[in-house]
Amino acid sequence: MATNRFHRYAAMAALVLFAAIFIMPFVWMLSTSFKHETRIFPPPGEYPQWIPRIDATDAQGRPLVWHRGQSAVDLGADEKGMHRLLENGREISVAAADIARRERIRFYWENYTRAFQMMDFFQNLRNTLYICLMATLGTVLSSSLVAYGFARIPWRGRDALFVVVLASMMLPYQVTLIPLFAVYSKLGWVGSFKPLIVPYFFGVPFYIFLLRQFFKGIPEDLSAAARIDGCTEFGIYARIILPLSKPALATTVLFQFLFQWGDFLNPLIYLQDDRQYTLAIALQQFQSQHESAWGPLMAMSTVITLPVILLFFLAQRTFIQGITMSGLKG
């Protein structure tokens, strides 16, 4: 039992170490979203701060510095570079090298208020949610159907056709964008949400492949038994396979939602009006040719990341349910 416990501690330690590495981008974003504009990027050669700070000042707004372990008010420098300090009520003159900037922790919430002022957040959120929900619904329904056809029914030409499904992911999008746009333009869909939603009701290769892999893992006996009971193929799909594939279906929902949530290019290409824009496009509003509003950008990035984290946190329970076998053994 001792080795068992040792293994568990070792695994735990490894997890904590790796988790510390993987959490960095998020903590970085969160921390930066609370930083004052002047503190987001440190001067070259210095480390970035993880806890947001600003220069400390006294009640009159004069900067505070450390001088030999004492706090002093910096009254400014003269031409020779000597700083006049107000220390314990006395005025003294010291070299710049002898003083250190005094800082205090300050969470700069103003980034968040500015971020919300700079974009029509709720309009963008509504557009994004609409596209995400509709496309995800379509993806789950259609991809699971198609995957069933590729995984659970033996028919001639199946594997060859499946390679075609995979192959449709292998061509870089750049060279099909022009003719694809022409198709949607002919259909009169450009400028609407349809190009971002309707195609997902026709099966998405990535999820067809994913679900096929999981469907194939479900014992054939279950289907055979249902067939003997007079169940149709659709019945087997709906009543046996789908309920047993919750982890894979949850993965599909999560990934598709996440993809649509962050997709920039497709909405930008097919939507023709600011009022249809999604959150991912609206992030552009913080970046312009000559200036990036990094504070509000990080704040808004944090805001739009949180719902996905929440979704993941709730969905991840289904990944571990492991119901496939255990629920059916008897």
């Binding site: 022009i178 400028g191 290019l265 930008l268």
Partner: peptide, 20 residues
């Protein structure tokens, strides 16, 4: 409409070729 610079060429060329 703010198109921005990130995909300006894609947007311009698709809309030209697609008559929109």
């Amino acid at each position: 409409v703010a198109v921005g610079f990130n995909a300006l060429m894609e947007k311009t060329l698709t809309s030209t070729a697609g008559h929109a």
